Structure formats: structure tokens, C-alpha cells
Amino acid sequence: MKRTLKFAAAALGAALLVPTLATGAQAAVSDCGEGQFCLFYNSNEQGSHMVVRSSIPDLAGYTFTSPGNGQGQHVKNNAASAVSNVCMTVWVNFYSNYGGPRDMFNYRNAANLVNTYNENASVKFASDC
């Protein structure tokens, strides 16, 4: 009987572990919750991130706050990727006050910054879905 209970406990533990392993690769994207736009310190939505809740004309003074590579670093001119879980178009701009080249993110879009990679100074929430 004890042997059966030990086997059942081991099987249950393994079954509970499988979903965690399957979702582990998606952890960075899920760190940016529904209704949030996040800028990440590293490419591929990795490292520390900052949640942006509304338009910011100048990212000076903002830092990456979540645990991970880049935590505490300035966001301005340091973001490499972004995740948009807000139902609107969001632009990451090269210059302060929403000027210059920009990268556009739509709802449920995650990507590396291209036009503003490590050269980002403002974020504009543009239009609703």
C-alpha cells in the first residue's frame, strides 16, 4: 500500500510540473499582463521591463523595474523590445515629444524594436482598437 501511495504521489508531482515547464518559455510575455504595454531591456521580451500605462513624451527619469537583466537602468535609449497587451495602437518614438522614426505595436503584438532599438525617447498611445 505504501509503495502505491509513493508512486501515486510521484506521478501527481510530475503531472503538476509539466504545465509549468510548458509555459516557462512564455514567461516574459506573460509578465506583461492584459491591459499593459511593456518595454523590455533585452531583445525577445527578455530582461527587466517597465509597464507603460499612458503616453509618455520623454522617458528620461524612468527605469526598468521588474527583476532581470537591466533592472534599475534608464529606459530612455535602452529598450530593445516591447509587448502590447493594450487594445490600441502604441508607437515607440526615436525622439522625445513623439518625433522621429518609430516602431508601431498593435494589440497582442510582441517584437524587437527596429527603428528605435536602444534609441527610444517617448511612447505614444494612439488609437483604440
Rank of each mutant, 00 (worst) to 15 (best):
S81L: 04
S81V: 04
V83H: 03
S84V: 02
S84Y: 00
N85R: 15
N85T: 11
V86W: 01
C87N: 13
M88F: 11
M88E: 12
T89I: 14
W91N: 13
W91S: 09
W91L: 12
V92A: 08
N93K: 08
N93C: 14
N93Q: 05
F94R: 09
F94N: 07
F94L: 07
F94K: 07
Y95H: 14
S96F: 05
N97L: 10
Y98G: 04
Y98S: 06
Y98E: 02
G99Y: 04
G99R: 04
G100R: 04
P101G: 15
P101F: 10
R102I: 06
R102S: 09
R102W: 09
D103C: 05
D103Y: 05
M104C: 07
M104P: 00
F105R: 01
F105M: 06
F105A: 04
N106G: 13
N106W: 10
Y107A: 09
A110S: 14
A111G: 08
A111D: 13
A111F: 10
N112R: 06
L113K: 01
L113V: 08
L113T: 05
V114H: 13
N115W: 02
N115G: 12
T116E: 06
T116P: 05
T116Q: 07
N118Q: 15
E119Q: 15
E119C: 11
E119D: 15
N120K: 01
A121C: 06
A121R: 00
A121W: 00
A121L: 01
S122D: 02
V123Q: 01
V123A: 01
K124I: 06
K124C: 08
K124E: 10
A126R: 10
A126I: 14
S127P: 01
S127H: 11
